[in-house]
Each structure stands twice: as C-alpha cells, then as structure tokens.
Amino acid sequence: MITSNRVRWHLGRVISRQFETGSAVRLELAVPTWPGNDAGAHLDIRLTAPGGYQASRSYSLASSGESTRVVLVVQELPGGEVSPFLVRQLAEGEEVEVQGPLGRFFVWIPAEPEQSPVQLIAGGSGVVPLFSMASARERELKGAEFRLLYSVRSPRDEFFADELAELSRTVVEIVYTRESAPGAGRPPGRLTREALAASTFPASLSPRIFVCGPTSFVEAVAGWLVELGHDPTQIRTERFGGSR
C-alpha cells in the first residue's frame, strides 16, 4: 500500500514513446523521486511554454507499484491544448514536471483482504487505470477474481491489445461499438444493459466495481448497475472529459 506518500512535484524524463493507436501515445517516464503509486492512481503533468505560460492536465497511470518508472497512455483530444503536444511532439529525453501520486479512492490495493470479486468496466481510454489494476492483480498469486469489460470503438482504437490478451488472472471481454474485428461473432454495437448483465459478475456475488470512461458512458453503466441490483456504495466511478 503506497497511499501514505505526500503529493509533490517531480521531474520526469521521457524514456520511450510509442504510438498506442493512431491517436494515442504510450509514454514511459523516468521519475527518480517517484515514491511509487497504487493501481488506478493518476498524476498531473505541467507544461511550461518558453514565454512562461503553463498548462496542467491529469492523466491516469497504466503502471503501479514501487517503481521510479511510470507509464501513461495519452489520447489526443481534437482541439486540445496539452494532449496534441504529448501525443505528437514531446520527444524522448525531454523533461516534464509531474505532480503526484494522486487519487486514493479509485485505486485497487492488492494487500486488502478481499473476498468479493472485482469487476472493471472501461469505456474508451478509460481503460488505462483499469488496466493498471488488472496488471497489479497479475502480479499477485492469490486474490480476488477479476473481470474486465472494455467498450471501445474498433480494434484499431484498442489500448494494451497485446497485454490484455496475455492476462491470466483477469477475464477480459471487449465490446466493439462501431467496427468489429474481422470474423468476429458479434456485430458492433453500443453496450446495452442486457449485454452488461451478461458480461459482468452478478449482484449476488457482491463484486466491487470500478467504472471509468467518458461521462455519458459512466452515467449509463453506473445507472444500469444499480438497476441490476448492485449496491451503489460498491461502485466507484471515474470520468474524464474535463479540461482539453
């Protein structure tokens, strides 16, 4: 459990960058003073222009644990101020200021004694903190049953495609909303309440549930979960769609 560390500013250096999809980049930063972070946590990145102008944004971390290397995947938002720079321009070797680790509620901590299963539900790039939780679960020999339901536009838009296929301790189900993989049995389409019910732990198992995605997705999914009998206090949500 890494939650006791105070939040502070750190200096990070880009170790590697690679395109995750056509419009998202995976950045690995070396942050020598980073105290580690829980799975599901995020950080703030602050950029400073040559004239002194600054802009800050929050990004979920795909990595967790006691490491001074952190990984994030940034989706480019059209018309955004920060994400196009991170996705298209930020170079290997360049430094950025980061503040964190942030977030002590939307996190999964392996050390917790945990009887009930854990259901992860992601919409689009909301998969990043949930992938972090599934990866943390992967490192534990024993623990709760995990399932991930991932709603994404098309196979081309999928994050962590290789890593998700290799998870052995999380059952992964992917719903393509616009375009399916060739030969897929199921036509593309938006997630429905019935499909959600069929692809997630039932309320009778009292799962802990983490939902992350755009607001419309989170509102719909969290509402359906309550309708399906899940305890609202067991449902933790995180939404994006704030500052561009």
Binding site: D44, R46, L47, T48, A49, G51, Y53, Q54, A55, S56, R57, E81, F85, Q89, L90, A91, F105, F106, T215, E219, A222, G223, L225, V226, P232, T233, I235, R236, T237, R239, G241, G242, S243, R244
Partner: peptide, 30 residues
C-alpha cells in the same frame, strides 16, 4: 515545443486552471 493556447491566460483563472465552456461531470459513484 509547447505553445499553449496563445500563451496567455485570463486573469480570472487561478494558477493551473484552464477555461472550459462545457460543464464536466465528476463524481465518485452512481
């Protein structure tokens, strides 16, 4: 390489804040 939006900000914005025109939703549960 970072320009930002015009490089200056509204004096009504506290440090580290960005002006938005929509109204984002944030909450911890349903």
């Amino acid at each position: 390489g970072f320009g930002g939006r015009g490089g200056s900000s509204d004096p009504r914005l506290p440090p580290g804040q960005t002006h938005v025109y929509d109204w984002p939703v944030l909450s911890t549960g349903p």
